[in-house]
């Protein structure tokens, strides 16, 4: 029987491009505060309302939270921080043992001059987007460990959606810390199928091009089995 997944933020910038890589192997329940412009049913769920998240998550095997608000002084906290707490609290209440979360990488501003970077410290700063996503990761980390919810957080700076992973592998340069859709789809599948996550919470760099020798995804390779085509 296929696993049932709840995708929150299904109408946003990321989820609609991840869905094609999941829909053949999973039953997807799409949800967003706004109707999805593409075809397909999408439940209306406001992540800032706990009862709505709880109701939507009933009966699913995993929650993928792609909801995000970037620059709004109030909604960034409500959607990103409170929303993450609602997701993890609902997962705990319903016995859901798997959550996938996303966040922006939190290091480029301070580390772009360095190389071979994997799992460096998070330096969010005070901007609404990066700070609230860092706080949301901490919320996920705390509740994942407390309630034994295997939780993965994918970090990336942007997406290079128009390219295939094979094309990127052969390129001479590509934006740092960007990931193509195929690779993010692969990472989601791996995160959904891996038996357990060490310490119940891990964050992973997600990127599709390693030519600069700057950022790497060694941890994702080591723990999730994330693979890239050879250049």
């Amino acid at each position: 029987m296929k696993k049932k997944l709840l995708l929150l933020g299904a109408s946003g910038g990321v989820a609609p491009r991840v869905i094609p890589g999941l829909e053949s192997d999973y039953d997807l329940l799409l949800a967003d505060i706004a109707p999805r412009p593409q075809a397909g049913a999408c439940a209306q769920v406001d992540i800032t309302r706990y009862e709505q998240v709880l109701e939507a998550a009933a009966g699913v095997d995993a929650i993928l939270n792609f909801s995000v608000i970037r620059g709004d002084p109030t909604q960034s906290f409500h959607v990103n921080v409170l929303g993450a707490w609602h997701v993890m609290t609902a997962a705990a209440e319903l016995g859901i043992s798997r959550v996938i979360h996303t966040a922006p990488q939190l290091l480029r501003e301070d580390y772009d001059w360095d190389f071979d970077l994997d799992d460096p410290p998070a330096m969010a700063g005070t901007g609404y987007y990066t700070l609230t996503r860092m706080l949301s990761m901490e919320v996920c980390r705390v509740l994942a460990r407390a309630h034994r919810i295997h939780t993965v957080c994918f970090l990336f700076a942007g997406v290079g959606g128009e390219f295939s992973r094979e094309q990127v592998a052969e390129m001479r340069d590509f934006p740092a810390f960007y990931i193509v859709w195929e690779d993010l789809q692969q990472a989601c599948r791996l995160a959904l199928e891996i038996e357990s996550i060490p310490d119940y919470f891990q964050e992973f760099n997600m990127l599709s091009y390693f030519g600069q020798g700057k950022y790497n995804a060694d941890k994702a390779k080591r723990i999730l089995g994330f693979q890239r085509p050879a250049p």
Partner: peptide, 15 residues
């Protein structure tokens, strides 16, 4: 919910 919002957003507003 109030406590979480107060501690995070409230602290950000203050600072």
């Amino acid at each position: 919910q109030f406590m979480l919002d107060w501690a995070t957003r409230g602290t950000h507003i203050l600072f």
